[in-house]
Amino acid sequence: MNTAAVRILGLDRRLVPLAATLALFIGLVVYGAVSYDAFLSPQVFLNLAIDNSFLCIVAIGMTFVILTGGIDLSVGSVLALTTMAAAALSKLGWSPWILVPLLLAGGSAFGAIQGFLIHRYRLQPFIVTLAGMFVARGLCYLIDTASIPISAPFFVAMAEARIPVGGGNSLSSGAVIAMITVAVALWLAHSTRFGRTVYAIGGNAKSATLMGLPVGSALVRVYAFSGGCAALAGLVMSVYMLSGYSLHAVGLELDAIAAVVIGGTLLTGGIGYVAGTVVGVLILGIIQTLVIFNGTLSSWWTRIVIGILLFLFCVAQRLIEARAGQKR
């Protein structure tokens, strides 16, 4: 009875993109280790986690959205708005115990409204979140057009906190928050009904509805989760930069989408892993690290290489889809 299974090199079809991503990451690490002596030091990799913590958090929220077959372009702006609000409100003397939950709730509510519009009025996620991006950026400017420094003790303490991981190396609080987010997202995606409904919607939204799954509420919650992740990333960035600025994280949504796609998630939805996204973020980070190590390469090569990788992964995805289509 085990016939007609689409298997490539003995792997489940769902795991092929993830395997490709991992292979790419290992390849890049090996390349770096061979080319540069100092590359294989632990702190290089810890810095990868520290410098990309907010990208990682945003990309995880984006993974869930893309798994449903949607997209969220508002995340970069929501992140910036959160840094602005955090800076402005902490300057007014708000307690972090109120501020942090409030901002997280605000980001989630922002996402939930977008999700509601997308589900209820059948609007295209692309255009709704595009408008959401404008709104959030515009609200940033309404608060202030200049950068606001953050000097509240809570944020400064968080920024100075270093979690030792042995051997004289340490992690920032943001990196730890990103790791906790990854753990929560893994649990959400693979061990809850909500997570499985997200996958079902991406696989076939019509079937998911006919199977009696709560498609509408899951969609609203997915965008709320993405908005919440963006707000959390905003808090992490406030700590990292110790400032709120309306031009923080311009274009971050593109990096997040790139990380998700390079992490092996299909943009058409239904197939992909949170773990893959984490590797995708690390790949983006390591490309940047390699460019820095090289010294002669200019920073724009990062963007071009990311574009090329995006192209290769998208073409590969198309080929996999076409193959699956033929089998049916």
Partner: peptide, 16 residues
């Protein structure tokens, strides 16, 4: 078949 091709066989039976 109104099921989700990307989920496992078992999940499709018990989804929700």
């Amino acid at each position: 078949v109104n099921l989700c091709p990307n989920l496992s066989v078992a999940e499709n039976i018990f989804a929700g």
